[in-house]
Amino acid sequence: MTSIAIALSRPRINRLYKLRGKQLLYPEGIVHLNDTAVKLLTLCDGTRRIIEIKDIVFDEYGFDMSINQDINDSFLQFYNNKWII
């Protein structure tokens, strides 16, 4: 997926997974998440585009290019792990 396609996508959590607190649960397995990952995944409700999710994060923490990059990297990872679709 290209970075533009990612930025315009409206991700939601893959039906295999369920977010519970700081844990992402799937059939017979658990992924332990850090606060950042939880924050981003919580915003993936299928209605928000990633650019909108970024706005929410920037509103809270201020804009910073390195934060922007980290969010991009995180979402790429989420897609690669199939946590979001």
């Binding site: 844990q23 017979e28 658990i30 992924v31 332990h32 950042t36 923490y61 910073d64 934060i67 792990n81």
Partner: peptide, 26 residues
Amino acid sequence: MKTIYFKTILPRTRVKTRAAAGQPNW
């Protein structure tokens, strides 16, 4: 500081690995 806060490290843990704290997951 913000950058550090947002460094996303995602430890991927299957049930086989040892839990961090002394509490059960399963």
